[in-house]
């Protein structure tokens, strides 16, 4: 699924400039614990989260997460946006709860980032 389609499904707004909307997203995960995000680490994944602190971007950088969607219209602070810009990780704000957004994306055919037993 392309990032463009995801943004349409969650009615999101892109918070960082220069985003490649045709980027292919392989799977999605809804998570608020950064260690959990690091555990499912897969390239080209989409993270839906209720956290907006800079560590979310750091975690995405370490785990090669392709893009981050913030739930319930939460807006990250300037530090978070600056770090995302520096690392080239698109940030998207969307109005719905994590439950609603996971549901919508699942209905739209998005795959889940399933946990591997082996790291990778």
């Amino acid at each position: 699924m392309k990032l463009r389609d995801i943004i349409r499904v969650v009615e999101g707004k892109v918070l960082t400039e220069g985003v490649n909307l045709d980027m292919e997203i392989s799977c999605a995960a809804g998570a608020d614990l950064m260690s959990d995000v690091l555990a499912f680490a897969k390239p080209n994944a989409l993270l839906l989260t209720g956290l907006v602190n800079p560590q979310v971007v750091r975690t995405a950088e370490m785990a090669d997460i392709a893009a981050i969607v913030f739930v319930r219209g939460k807006m990250p602070g300037p530090e978070t946006i600056a770090l995302a810009r520096e690392k080239g990780i698109p940030l998207i704000a969307a109005p719905y709860t994590m439950f609603e957004m996971c549901g919508r994306l699942y209905e739209a055919g998005m795959a889940s980032c399933d946990l591997d037993t082996k790291q990778g």
């Binding site: 999605a28 995960a29 809804g30 998570a31 499912f40 839906l48 719905y96 709860t97 994590m98 439950f99 609603e100 996971c102 549901g103 919508r104 994306l105 699942y106 209905e107 998005m110 889940s112 980032c113 399933d114 946990l115």
Partner: peptide, 18 residues
């Protein structure tokens, strides 16, 4: 299963966020 999958399956059963 992951949270994403469980929520997806619940949504398919008619459970929504509101």
């Amino acid at each position: 299963k992951t949270t994403f999958t469980v929520v997806g399956e619940l949504t398919a059963l008619g459970v929504r966020g509101e």
